[in-house]
Structures are given as structure tokens and as C-alpha cells.
């Protein structure tokens, strides 16, 4: 369960999504039983029940759940398991929800209508340490490095820790350049680019163990 890169068994995945067809569709994307072992939950309490028996390699969770918010789940999992990769399932991949999830420790997002093959690829990439990032998320982060405050999201996105190279990579992604193009422009190895992304997420993550931060998130000081 805690294997990082090379692993023998299937990747354990928990899907938390209240819409049945969507949940089933994502599960279909991960139907290769030799590669994935999938558990499903439709509500927050179901998810907690499932997680009670152990934390998976990958958690795919929706944010709006009938009995609570996906953020709570992300926070719980991140507090108890550092190795679980977390993806937010999003319709639009909009910055507001995705960035908030990243602040709590998520590693990216998965579009609800992603191609079935893409779903499996994303999960596999994730296990290889490749966090998915979209152009608009990259754009959102680099804008914050330029001191633009978003009055809607209002997050105190701490971009101070990002290096110039990381910001360059984000710019490249925001403008639609492929990882290969970015690596060529920056004179770095193509294989290292996904690692940079994960690093960027880790730097943005707030310390959710500090209750104060979570309280602030809860009370909307840092709007989710």
C-alpha cells in the first residue's frame, strides 16, 4: 500500500462521487482488475467507512457530497496518510475548487468527462509521481506570483517558495507548451518536468495539521 514507484500488486483506488453514472464511468476507466483495485463511495460517511479499513494509494473525490464537503475528506486523508495521492473530481477543473484542494494537500484534479483511457493514465502517472496540472491552474498560480490577489478565491496562496524555474515551467504550461517544449526551452530533462509540478503542489500546500489554518479555511477566511 505504501509503495512509491515500483509495485507488485494493483493500485488501490477509492472513488467518492455522489452521482452514480459518473462514479461508475470513472470506475469503468479503472476496470483493469490487474492494475487497479477500486472501492466506491457515494457519500462522505460511506467514504469514511471505506477509508476506515485502510488508506488507498489514490483517492478520487468529488467536492460537493450529499452529507458534507470533499475538502473535509481530503484534510482527513492528508493528515493520516502522507502517501495517498489525492485527486479532485471536477466538472470544470475551475481554479477555485482545485486550488483550494491543492492547499489542503490534493495533487491535482480529474475532469468528470475525461476519456476513459485518460482516467487510467492519469492514475498511473500519479503513482509515478506525475501530478496533473492544467493550463488554467498553472495560469492561476503564476498570476499569484505576480502579486495579483483574487478577491473571489481570496486565498493567501503562498507562492514565495516557488523558484524561478518552477515559475517558468508554470508559464510554459499556462501558454500551452508541452512538457517537451518546456524542457527544451529551459534546458532541462523532459522526464523531470512532472516532478517539478508535484514539487510546486507540495510547496503550495498549507500545513493542514495546524488547526488554525483549517479553522480559517472552514470559516471562509480562506474561501473554499
Amino acid at each position: 500500500m505504501n509503495t512509491q514507484t515500483e509495485r507488485a500488486g494493483p493500485i488501490s483506488v477509492v472513488i467518492v462521487e455522489d452521482d452514480g453514472p459518473t462514479r461508475q464511468r470513472i470506475a469503468d476507466g479503472l476496470s483493469d482488475a490487474s492494475a487497479f483495485s477500486v472501492l466506491q463511495a457515494g457519500t462522505l460517511s460511506e467514504a469514511r467507512q471505506v477509508l476506515g479499513s485502510g488508506y488507498p494509494d489514490v483517492l478520487l473525490t468529488d467536492l460537493q457530497l450529499p452529507d458534507g464537503h470533499g475538502m473535509d475528506l481530503i484534510r482527513d486523508v492528508r493528515q493520516h496518510s502522507q502517501t495517498t495521492e489525492i485527486l479532485v473530481i471536477s466538472i470544470l477543473g475551475d481554479e477555485e475548487s482545485v486550488i483550494s484542494a491543492i492547499l489542503l494537500g490534493a495533487n491535482g484534479y480529474l475532469l468528470k468527462d475525461a476519456l476513459l483511457t485518460d482516467i487510467a493514465d492519469t492514475v498511473r502517472d500519479l503513482m509515478r509521481g506525475h501530478s496533473p496540472i492544467s493550463a488554467s491552474i498553472a495560469r492561476f498560480i503564476v498570476k499569484r506570483t505576480q502579486g495579483v490577489k483574487d478577491p473571489v478565491v481570496g486565498t493567501d496562496l503562498n507562492t514565495a517558495k516557488l523558484t524561478a524555474r518552477e515559475i517558468d515551467i508554470l508559464w510554459g504550461i499556462a501558454k500551452g507548451f508541452s512538457y517537451a517544449d518546456i524542457a527544451d526551452y529551459l534546458g532541462i530533462s523532459r522526464q523531470t518536468v512532472p516532478g517539478y509540478i508535484k514539487n510546486i503542489y507540495r510547496k503550495l500546500e498549507v500545513n493542514t495539521r495546524g488547526e488554525a489554518v483549517f479553522e480559517a479555511l472552514q470559516q471562509g477566511l480562506i474561501k473554499l
Partner: peptide, 17 residues
């Protein structure tokens, strides 16, 4: 270019399909 970046993501899935 920033708008094209997002567009690229959208059409790449479409073309792959």
C-alpha cells in the same frame, strides 16, 4: 497564448477520442 493553453488541453482530448 494563455487562452490557447487551455484550449490545447480541451482539443487534445477531443482529437484523442
Amino acid at each position: 497564448m494563455l487562452a490557447l493553453g487551455s484550449w490545447r488541453e480541451r482539443i487534445s482530448g477531443q482529437l484523442r477520442a
